[in-house]
């Protein structure tokens, strides 16, 4: 049997908001180490990998590895019924065909349970090896979201170039073109406002803004975002989830014919 109690239930609500438009159905995998998910969008251009480590839950019981297929639209509907301050407990029986979400108000005066039917989903996991990336940019997540949103009003794709001068986001479209350069800065009072660039080699890659904009729905999960890039590899856009894990989005680049 499975019983996972997450005191900060709003994290799960935010995770669903961040991925439900990218992925329709997904298997949530539960093991001793944590609650995780790996899924691709329908066109196999983007991949999302979520990890909520077991030690981030107040109570974590998972007797044996369990993979639960869920429709994320339906899961999101149910989690929307939880208050932002609610404690969320996920419960399932081994081999059962449903999962129960229990919501408790902080003062324990209201308890709800919502049972959702599980579905069979062919589990296809991509093996993603640990990689040394050529360039890693850490920047405020709101700034990254702003840049993606602004540039998508001009063009459909963005060229992200990392050099010793900074990280440059460039686009062009019918009405004109735009470049945004963020330089490394060190914020004394607030680390979350820093832009930090670690670069072994300059990198320049082209991506569809539509997907990057979708990833920025995770902005509410973290004040900072990390972009890891290497030549001829998908970019990794990572949002840390405080004390408990991360959500990583991988996006395959566009290449010149």
């Amino acid at each position: 049997m499975l019983e996972l109690r997450l005191v900060q239930g709003s994290l799960l609500k935010k995770v669903l908001d961040a991925i439900k438009d990218l992925v329709t159905d997904a298997n949530f995998d539960c093991s001793e180490s944590g609650f995780s998910l790996q899924a691709m969008d329908s066109s196999h251009v983007a991949l999302v990998a979520l990890l909520l480590r077991s030690d981030g839950f107040e109570h974590y019981r998972c007797d044996r590895n369990l993979s639960m297929g869920m429709n994320l639209t339906n899961m999101s509907k149910m989690l929307k019924c939880a208050g932002n301050d609610d404690i969320i407990t996920i419960k399932a029986d081994d081999g059962g065909d449903s999962v129960t979400f229990m919501f408790e108000s902080p003062s324990q005066d209201k308890v709800s349970d919502f049972e959702m039917k599980l579905m069979d989903i062919d589990s296809e996991h991509l093996g993603i090896p640990e990689t040394e990336y050529h360039a890693i940019v850490k920047m405020p997540s709101a700034e990254f979201a702003r840049i993606c949103r602004d540039l998508s009003t001009i063009g459909d794709t963005v060229v992200i170039s990392v050099s010793k001068d900074g990280v440059k986001f460039s686009t062009s479209g019918d009405i004109g073109s735009a470049n945004v350069v963020c330089r490394q800065n060190n914020s004394v009072d607030n680390k979350d406002n820093e832009t930090v660039i670690e670069m072994n080699e300059p990198v320049s890659l082209t991506f569809a803004l539509r997907y990057l904009n979708s990833f920025t729905k995770a902005t509410t999960l973290s004040n900072t975002v990390t972009l890891s890039m290497s030549k001829e590899l998908p970019v990794v856009v990572e949002y840390k989830i405080a004390e408990i894990g991360h959500i990583r989005f991988y996006l395959a680049p566009k290449i010149e014919d």
Partner: peptide, 14 residues
């Protein structure tokens, strides 16, 4: 022209 690549051209199913 640019072509959109797919995840499975970089990583393989495990």
């Amino acid at each position: 022209r640019e072509t959109q690549t797919r995840m499975d051209s970089y990583y393989h199913f495990s």
